[in-house]
Nucleic acid binder design. Sequence first.
DNA 1: CTGACTGCAAACGTTTTGCACGGTA
DNA 2: TACCGTGCAAAACGTTTGCAGTCAG
Lengths: 140, 140
Amino acid sequence: MQQLDFTSLLKQYNLKATPQRIIFLKELMDAGHLSIEELESRVKSVIPTISTATIYKNINSMVQKGLLNEVKLPGVKTKYEITKYKHAHFFCKSCQKVFDIKVDTSCIYQEIDKEFSIDEIDVSVQGICRECLKDDKKVS
Amino acid sequence: MQQLDFTSLLKQYNLKATPQRIIFLKELMDAGHLSIEELESRVKSVIPTISTATIYKNINSMVQKGLLNEVKLPGVKTKYEITKYKHAHFFCKSCQKVFDIKVDTSCIYQEIDKEFSIDEIDVSVQGICRECLKDDKKVS
DNA sequence: CTGACTGCAAACGTTTTGCACGGTA
DNA sequence: TACCGTGCAAAACGTTTGCAGTCAG
């Protein structure tokens, strides 16, 4: 995705397209999922003069407008991703990476929609990714 | 559950049964799921002299030993519950209460266990609980 | 009796705020 | 030009730490 796309993406969400925000989104797009800490260090390596306050202000405004999505996973700091189609997350306990996965939640609906009115279902899975499974074999 | 049960529960997890910890667990058992803030205010209403540091130290040691479980839900502060059988959570957007629910995750396994080695699946559902649905009808 | 737990206060890291300046639309 | 966004510094939070005294086992 080029810079122009981030510009129009920001405008779609009623946010001004500043250089800081474009780098911000670029880093998030490249990495997929980043904690505030990770995002800050990545953005600062591109724009060393950016202030921490700006990082926070942008995360908050983008989450509030719906451009970013908060990803809460067990035992890990909250991460952020650019909002896209609804999906689940896989967290690899070995490499600590987060993967987007597609899951079928039909079996979950069937169990509980008698008792509750369901708006949304969030699924997160933990385990070992294929890449780390391969590495394990090499080591052992 | 009586006080004696909390005492033995703490001992099972190699934690000394102090009065602070017993109240701590009692409040969590009554409420089901509490944030640090909520837990602190409830415990302080029983033992006003308890210090915030003790609250934090106990949460950390109990989570580390496995007596408590961290519950991360979208858009809400992290809550804690006494560890029990594996279950999912339902969060009511109206009354803000958390309910324990039983879900069948078989359909999720089938989709992704070709690509990943799965250790655990977490499911959280948001919507409106039956009680709030009833209240809505009364109002409208 | 000993090690673990508590309470206090200070320290620390993270997030927010206010304000003057600068840049986008 | 009119706002919105940025950067800085200070303030406000939330959480952790060190230590002396206390208590459970």
